[in-house]
Amino acid sequence: MPSLPYRTLALSLGLALAGAAQAQGHDHSKMDHAAHQAAQKPPAKPAAAVDHSTMDHSKMDHAGMGDTKPAAPETKPAPMDHSQMDHSQMDHSRMTQAKPATSEPREPIPQPTDADRAAAFAPISLHMQHAPEFNHYVLINRLEAVDAEHGNAQAWEGQAWFGNDTDRLWLRSEGEREDGRVESANLEALYGRAISPWWDVVVGAKHDLRPEHGQTWAAFGVQGMAPYKFEVAATAYIGEAGRTALNFEAEYELLLTNRLILQPLIEVDLYGRDDPQRGIGAGLSTVEAGLRLRYEVTRQFAPYLGVTWERAFGDTADYRRAAGEDNNDAQLVAGVRVWF
């Protein structure tokens, strides 16, 4: 029987061999710790059970319940290769063609009727009854210096009215002065009655102050704005001893800019009988044309430069030649235009 020390040594050797064998069976260097940890996670708790016994199925919409198919991926159609198509075998008669756009509107404007015209151009008594108050207007259309043949001269032409839009008193005057002496001058006083929004009928009297002794005429005519904004005045006169005369005047304002305005003018005089004392012949007597360019410093005040041309005809030209005057004359003018 061996002694105690040997028995203790043998027991220690046996325990050491048993520990080495166990260590060799569990090699932790070759273990997957991630998988081991995942395996060690506790299982997920099951969802709480739904108690269907307490639910009111009569109020639930079961139409949308069922097996839902996954949405198919959206695909774009492949472009067609027309180069490989045989168009000769295709029926093009059923293909629709776009209608060309027409120049006429879809809803043409109807033609105006007589009722439409009557509504647009109401009687003058109804058209202007909104402005019965008294007004006035004074215009000195020409106040100018003239480069005359025998020196400097002056000329004027103006008009004024007082009243309302339908009834007015018109005053008109024009004349010339040369070498400190008035060569011609007249004054007209007329009653004007509006017969349309653009035209007045006038009747009254005219008095010639010069030349020679004075003469009075009865006057009547029309004045206003013609189409295309031509200002027109036509007046007939009946004087002493059965003398008659007719004056026609037209002018136009062409706006070159907002302030620079070109104003052409033409005036024609005709007489029924010869008047040797005044150097006037029967028929077409004189024609005067003018062209004035003004600049409106203000709307009420505008200086201007221009040129005028006058020619005498018939017996009037003969009287002028007999007096040593030209029957054809062109002049430079400069003046101002004022209204208030």
Rank of each mutant, 00 (worst) to 15 (best):
A23Y: 01
G283R: 05
D61F: 05
H62S: 09
H33T: 13
Q111G: 11
G163R: 04
D91F: 07
D61I: 03
D315L: 08
P108W: 06
K99M: 12
L11H: 09
M55V: 15
K30F: 06
D116W: 03
A322C: 04
K76T: 11
A218V: 07
A289E: 02
A226G: 06
L256Q: 11
A219S: 05
A194G: 03
R273Q: 15
F121P: 00
I124L: 14
Q215S: 14
K41Y: 04
E288Y: 02
G204I: 05
M85N: 08
E310M: 10
E176D: 12
L260E: 01
Q331C: 06
V50S: 09
A98H: 08
I109H: 07
G335N: 03
L143Y: 03
A39D: 13
A312Q: 01
A115D: 15
A115Q: 15
V203S: 10
F230S: 12
N328F: 02
W217M: 01
T75E: 01
H82W: 08
A322Y: 05
G242V: 09
R299F: 04
D269C: 09
Q223G: 06
D27H: 09
I261Y: 04
T54K: 08
F248H: 05
T8F: 08
D165P: 00
F162W: 12
D326S: 15
G66W: 07
E188V: 09
N328V: 09
P70F: 00
A72Q: 14
P5S: 01
L255A: 15
P112W: 13
A78W: 01
L143D: 01
A48I: 06
M31Q: 13
W170G: 00
G272K: 09
N152S: 11
W339R: 05
D81F: 03
T166Y: 07
Q111M: 14
A39E: 12
D27T: 07
Y6T: 11
I261E: 01
A250K: 00
V287S: 05
N258F: 07
W156Q: 02
Y271V: 03
G221I: 05
D91P: 08
G224T: 02
T75C: 02
E267H: 10
G335P: 00
H136M: 10
F301G: 01
S58A: 12
G163L: 04
R168N: 04
A241G: 10
K206C: 04
G324M: 10
H127Y: 10
A101N: 09
K41A: 15
R259K: 13
R292K: 13
A35Q: 13
M31D: 12
Q159W: 13
Q223R: 11
Q129E: 15
D167I: 08
G19S: 14
G151A: 05
P110T: 15
L9S: 07
K59I: 14
K229I: 08
P43I: 04
Q300M: 09
L169C: 05
Y271E: 00
A185D: 00
P42A: 15
D208H: 03
N135Y: 12
N141W: 02
P276N: 00
P112A: 13
I109V: 14
D274F: 04
W217D: 00
D179I: 07
A250V: 15
Q300Y: 10
